[in-house]
Structures are given as structure tokens and as C-alpha cells.
């Protein structure tokens, strides 16, 4: 198994600062490659969202670089993996809060992490970034931790209303604000040839999920360069349609190693 992956991030047409941050990496362990991606969207309503998102990406990438190999070498259970990630997530929450308190500022970020170890994927999710899986069709794997999603779940608004709801930028959980964070955890199986897509909310406001699905065909995911070309085209499309927020996207495809 090997992974082809690419990532692109853009400040968007209006924002001065890109408060998104992304990280991707793969690692070989016991003849199998593992893949890790993290995507963060700094909370723009607070100061230094860009700091929060970038630091969070760094912390999780450090986990994957230094700790994951140790865990993998000894063989780990899903329980241990989850325990460790939840500890790091809450530790990061604490770090951001402490940093902010020491400087009389508030900073926060959403975060979604995807870990792939064939044939399983694991997702830890805080906020409103999105993670999708595609085989012949596209499936959304995460649920937004947002007010609008909550209203949708309660049946108070429709899908259509949700798209244009002014409250769509209100999230219910992030790193850096609350006392503790309870990440949503998702796990499942994937096959060779499946594609994962992670994106910040700036990507999905002006585009249908079907368009996303149709953008990443076989040719577009043959190589990293093609993937990132496709990502850049999508971002451009979304900007032309009036998206003003930061936009970030990661795609990764699981392929048979040759």
C-alpha cells in the first residue's frame, strides 16, 4: 500500500491572513505505510487564529513523527491510540488557552485528523472541517460540530436553509476555548483505490458535494502534481463564486504498491 497525496491552502479573495493550516505525512511500518493528515481552521472571530491552527498542526505532526512510530513498533490497540490522541487534543486545548491567557488574547482552532493504516481509517474531529471518503461515490465521514448542524439534526431547518443560514459560521467546539474537548471519533474500513478528502469549511460553501466528487477522477489522482492542480482549480472555482473565507484541501489516495 502506498499513498498519493497533495494539499493546497489559500487565504481566499478577501482575508488578509490565511488562518488555515494543513499537514500530511506518510510513514512505513512493518511493510505497511501509514498516512496521517491534519487540517485546522483558525477561529477568525478571535485573535491569532493562524497561530492556533499552525501550532495545532505542528503538535499533531510531531505526534505522528515521534510517537506513532513508537506505538506502531510495539503494536497498539485502538484503545491506546484513542487514549493518546484524546490526551494530546486536550493538552493542545490547554496550551492554546494558557498561551492566550498569558497574553490577554483568545485564540482557537478547529481540527480534524485522519490516520490511515490499511485497511482501517481513524478520524478525530473537532469543529467544522470535513472529511470525505470516495470510492465510486462520495461519503461524508464527519458531522459538523456547528449550530446549524445541530438545528438540522433537530429538524428545525432544512438542508437548503442550512446552506444560507447566517449562523453557519458558529461552531460548538474548538481547541483553545473550553475547559476540555471531546473529539468525535470515527473509524471504518477503506479499500485500495479509495480517496480521502479533507477540507476546511471555505471549500464547501460555494460548491456542491457532487462537484467535489466529480472533480477527483482517476486521472486527477494519478500523481501528487495532478491532485494539487485539481485542488487549485477547485479553489479558484470557489473563489470565483464569491467565497471569501480561507480555503484548504487535502486529498489522499490509497494505492497498491508496485
Amino acid at each position: 500500500m502506498k499513498y498519493i497525496y497533495g494539499c493546497t491552502t489559500d487565504a481566499g479573495s478577501k482575508k488578509r491572513v490565511n488562518q488555515d493550516a494543513v499537514g500530511v505525512r506518510s510513514y512505513a511500518v512493518k511493510n505497511m505505510e501509514a498516512f496521517f493528515a491534519v487540517i485546522c481552521d483558525g477561529v477568525g472571530g478571535l485573535e491569532c487564529g493562524e497561530l492556533a491552527s499552525a501550532d495545532t498542526v505542528e503538535q499533531f505532526m510531531n505526534w505522528f513523527i515521534y510517537e506513532f512510530p513508537q506505538m506502531a513498533e510495539n503494536g497498539i490497540s485502538e484503545t491506546k491510540l484513542r487514549e493518546r490522541m484524546e490526551y494530546i487534543i486536550n493538552n493542545q486545548n490547554e496550551r492554546l488557552k494558557n498561551y492566550g491567557e498569558a497574553r490577554s488574547i483568545r485564540l482557537a482552532t478547529t481540527a480534524s485528523m485522519l490516520l490511515c493504516i490499511y485497511p482501517y481509517y481513524y478520524i478525530w474531529h473537532v469543529g467544522d472541517c470535513r472529511v470525505y471518503r470516495m470510492d465510486k461515490r462520495m461519503y461524508r465521514l464527519t458531522e459538523d460540530q456547528s449550530l446549524v448542524q445541530k438545528e438540522l439534526n433537530l429538524g428545525r431547518i432544512t438542508e437548503e436553509q442550512a446552506r444560507y443560514d447566517k449562523r453557519r459560521n458558529i461552531i460548538l467546539q474548538s481547541l483553545g476555548v473550553g475547559e476540555a474537548v471531546t473529539p468525535a471519533f470515527y473509524t471504518g474500513k477503506f479499500r485500495r483505490g479509495d480517496l480521502f478528502l479533507l477540507c476546511t469549511d471555505g471549500m464547501i460553501h460555494q460548491i456542491e458535494e457532487k462537484e467535489l466528487e466529480e472533480s477527483f477522477g482517476f486521472r486527477e489522482t494519478e500523481s501528487r502534481e495532478r491532485m494539487e492542480d485539481c485542488q487549485r482549480r477547485l479553489i479558484q472555482k470557489v473563489k470565483e463564486r464569491g467565497e471569501q473565507d480561507n480555503i484548504s484541501i487535502i486529498t489522499v489516495k490509497a494505492e497498491e504498491s508496485v
Binding site: 497525496y5 500530511v24 505525512r25 512505513a28 493562524e50 499552525a54 501550532d55 512510530p69 513508537q70 480561507n246
Partner: peptide, 22 residues
């Protein structure tokens, strides 16, 4: 301070593992 510049995107891949971790 252990904080990276905003908007940074990182990617990388390791060479195949050559032995015990670390």
C-alpha cells in the same frame, strides 16, 4: 514557542523504515 507560521502547509514522506523505530 513551538508555534509555526500561519497558513503553513506541510507535507513530507519518510524513507522506508530501515530498522527499529528511532
Amino acid at each position: 514557542m513551538g508555534m509555526a507560521v500561519p497558513g503553513a502547509a506541510r507535507s513530507g514522506s519518510d524513507a522506508a523504515q530501515q530498522g527499529p523505530a528511532g
